[in-house]
Design a protein around this nucleic acid. Sequence first.
DNA 1: ACAAAAAATGACTATATAGTCATAAACATC
DNA 2: GATGTTTATGACTATATAGTCATTTTTTGT
Lengths: 294, 294
Amino acid sequence: MMDKRKAILEAAVELIAEYGYTRTSMQQIADNVGVSKGSLYSFFPSKEDLIISIYEHYQQLVFERAFVVGLDNNLPPYKRFAKQFQVQFEGILEYKSYMKMHIRGESAQNSEKLQGLHHRMRGRLFNWLEQNLIDLYGESILPYKWDLMWMTQSIYTSYMGLIISSENVLPPEGLGQHIVRQIDILAKDFLQGNSVPFLDDEMMRPFSVGMDRDGAFTSFQDRERAWKALYKRIHELRNATYYFEVTDRISEESRKSKPDELVMRGLFRLLKEEETLAAKAYVLEEQLLPATED
Amino acid sequence: MMDKRKAILEAAVELIAEYGYTRTSMQQIADNVGVSKGSLYSFFPSKEDLIISIYEHYQQLVFERAFVVGLDNNLPPYKRFAKQFQVQFEGILEYKSYMKMHIRGESAQNSEKLQGLHHRMRGRLFNWLEQNLIDLYGESILPYKWDLMWMTQSIYTSYMGLIISSENVLPPEGLGQHIVRQIDILAKDFLQGNSVPFLDDEMMRPFSVGMDRDGAFTSFQDRERAWKALYKRIHELRNATYYFEVTDRISEESRKSKPDELVMRGLFRLLKEEETLAAKAYVLEEQLLPATED
DNA sequence: ACAAAAAATGACTATATAGTCATAAACATC
DNA sequence: GATGTTTATGACTATATAGTCATTTTTTGT
C-alpha cells in the first residue's frame, strides 16, 4: 500500500539483523515483503542505498526521539540523565532488530555517506554525555570528561547489547538509574582527586564533532527544544497515534538530503488542524524550514 | 618455506581485518602470500576452515599467553590484576590486525565450531575476572560479581577498541592500572551497600561456562600454573628467545584438534636439554600429554 | 643424470546474486 | 469498455568467487 517503502525497510532490517548484509540478498528481501525484486529497485536505486535508508530511518526513530523525549521534562539533572537512558533503552527494546543490525556493524563496504552518519551519531552521543556531565558536576568535571564519557558509553553500549540478546527483559528504568549511579561514583572519585585522568582532548580528537562545522548540527539544540514541546502536546491528546504518524513522517522527510518543502509544509498543515498543537508546530516548522531568505 | 601456513594466516588476517570476511576472496589472500589459490586449499580445506584456524592461532597468542604471563608472578592481588590487563593490552598491540578482525566480529556465517570457540573464550574471560574479584575482595563480592564483571568487560573491550584504532599508543601499563582503579571504586561502593546489584545468575546464565563441562577447560587452572612456572624459568635465561620459540610451537601444537604427540614429545625434549628447565618442562608435559592410560 | 614422488599451479566449473528491462498487469480517464 | 498511463514483474545479463583437478614444476633418491 502506501507504505510499501516502510515494509521493505522493515523486512530488510529483520533479515540483515539475522543474516548480515552480504548474506541477505535483494531477492530474499523482496520475497519477504511479497513484492518483486524490480519493485525494490523503484524505491531504492541500489542495495547500498537501501541500507543507508535503513540507518536514516531508524537512527531517527531510536535515538533522536529518545534524546528529545529525554529532555522533555523539568527533572533535576541526576534524574533527568537517568530518564534519558531509560528512554533510550525503551527505544532499543522497541527496535531490537535494527539495534542488532547496528551493533553488528552491518554495512556496505565503506560507504562515505554511512561513515559520515556514524561519525555524526557518535559525536552527538558524546556531546550529549558532556552536556549531562556539566549539568551534574559543573565545569570542574571537564578535565575528566573523556575518561568518564568513554567509560559511560562503553557501559551503555554493552548493556544495550545485553538488552538485545537477552531473553529476559531488563527494566529500562532500573537500568537507567543503575548506569547513572555508577557514573556518579566514578565522577565523584575523579573530583576528589583520587584518580588521574587517562584520556585527553588530543587523543580523543577523532571523537569530537565540532558543533559549528555542520549546519544541521548547530541548530540541533533549538530543534530539539521545538520537538520536545510538540511531542509533549501530542502526548496530551486522545488520538495521539495519528499525530505521531504525522510527526514521524515530518521527521523522516527532514532527514533526507533534499527534503521536499511542499511535503513538509503539507504535513505541518495537518498538525495545525489540531489547534492545541498549532503554536508548537509553527515553532518547529520555523526550525526545520527557515523562511525563504536562507 | 616451512611456515607457509603461517604466512597464509597472517596475510588472511590483514586482509580480513581491513575488508571483512566476505569481501576478502581466497584469490586475494593467495596473491598476497604469493602462492596459488590451489595451494591455499592444500593447507585449509575451505575458507571457513581458514578463518577458524586464524581464531585458533591468534586467540592462543593474544589471550592464553597473556593469561599465563599475567599469573607469572607473586604480586599482591591488586597489582597482579593490573599487570594481567597490561599484558593483555600488550598482546593486543602486538596483534592489532587480528584484534581488529576479532572486534569486527568477522566470521563465516554461523559456524558451529566458531561459536563454540567464542563462547568458551568469553566464559574464560568471565571466570578469570571472577577469580580476580575473589582474590581482591573475598567471597563477599559474589552478590555483585555479575554487575562488576559486566562493566569491567565492557570497559576493557572498549579500551581495547581504542588501542586498536588510535594513532597514539596508549601505555598498556597505565591503562591496566586505570581499569583496575575504576573497578575498585565500583566494587567498594557495592561492598559498602550503597548500590543494588542489577544482574543475577539467572540472567547471566548464557555467559556462564561450567568449569567441568569441557575437559580441556577443567584442567586449565593446572595447565596455567605449569605454563607459569616454565615461563618464569625461561625468563631467567640468557637465550630466552630460543626457548620461547620452542614453547610457542608447543603451545600451537597443543591447540590443534589432534596434536601430534611425537612432535610434542620432541619439543619437550628440546626444552629439557636446558637443565634448569627440565623439571618445569616435565610438569607441563604431564599436563598436556597425560600418560597413555587416558 | 634420470626417474619417481611431491608440491604448486591456474584454467575451469558451479553457483550465487546485484542490477536491468521488455512485457504484463493494474489503474485512471473519458 | 476502450484507450492511455502508471506500476509491477521476473526472466535475463554481467560479474564475482569458492572450490576442483589435470597439468606442470620442483624436490628427492639413487
